[in-house]
Design a protein around this nucleic acid. Sequence first.
DNA 1: TAACACCCTGTTAT
DNA 2: AATAACAGGGTGT
Length: 400
Amino acid sequence: MVSANISISIQGLTRDRSCALHGRILSLKQDPTHLHYQTIWPTPYPLSPPSSVKSSAIGTPDVEDDTESLIHHYLNLGPDLTALYEHWSSVDLNFKKRAPKFTGVRILKQDAWEALVGFICSSNNNIIRISQMVRSSHYSKRCSYIKLFQVHNLCLHYGPLIGHINNQAIHDFPTPESLTGAGVESHLRELGFGYRAGYIAKTARIVANERPEGWLQTLSNPELFEDGLDQKGLPEGGREGYRKAHEELLQLQGVGPKVADCVCLMGLGWGESVPVDTHVWQIAQRDYKFGKGKHKSLTKATYDAIGDHFRNLWGKEAGWAHSVLFAADLKTFSGRLITKLEVDVDEVKIKQEDGSAFESKVIMKREYALDEVKEESGEGKDGIILESSRSQRAKRRRTR
DNA sequence: TAACACCCTGTTAT
DNA sequence: AATAACAGGGTGT
């Protein structure tokens, strides 16, 4: 009996598991062995021949259903995760120690403009509010009845209407042009964006008015649509295209080094981009000897040094490796710290509702209770006990 | 280079 | 129960 799993966390995925992706509405769900998808709109989509779907050209218009390759691309399912994890583990003992509990982490290939706006919203902010601002249909249980109907966000107010599902309007992400109006900033403030309203309005104007058509895409990695992952040939500081993209993005409003690197990594396909936020800064201090001497505080110089260190250590997909360690530290995933995941590789099928399928390698995981892990791991490894409960954290604070 | 303000929300501490 | 601090995937000045 095979137990396989892909953990999906997609921006804008609603409770009924529908989301807008590249102008269409998809419904996604997963069971222990499969990732299911269905094209809700446009409607007569999933009538394509089962076996011939393989990766035909991306640009082929409406004759064939390219939804499959779309999902495959967006979830970045091409690269062999096991091989990547093995490589990072072989060059870094700390990665080897921490990564096994966090298998299956992949870098989404997001739309660059959407990623840009999303990460501008992320500054000094928490994840829940970010998703509420940008794409959300996230209904917190604590939201009042009234608030349920006040879920304002960027897509709802400025994005083109794609269609409806369950009487709920689905909007795609707004273009830069649609955010250049006179009242945008004040409106976004009313919608709860705070000072990020100004960032978005100004950045939208710069992109729409002061940059050539398609400018953002020209900054992307030309290999964005390939799955090749050779590990060599990474110059100090990253490839020229990456450095150029980073530098250009810094010219925008509300975009500092961290946001620029997020866009480079997730929106533009530059795998060596290493966004250093407060979490990564903590990790760098705790596990990689930063925080002393020349790199006492997180200045721009320190920021670049951390990125260079990880690029030298992990190679071309340093940003990916960094995301694994980042996930291992996120409070959001702390629930996963009390379980141990046994890792194996298996072929699973990703199939459509009509039964056609293609295969993809994913990580197989089995979860074990904490007690069993304690026996195995022995000698006081701190990785598991940390953050596993509130009482323990409170205790730790008091003893400082 | 180091502070500090910036919006606002959920959590934790009194 | 109510209210005060505070941090939360930074950036601009």
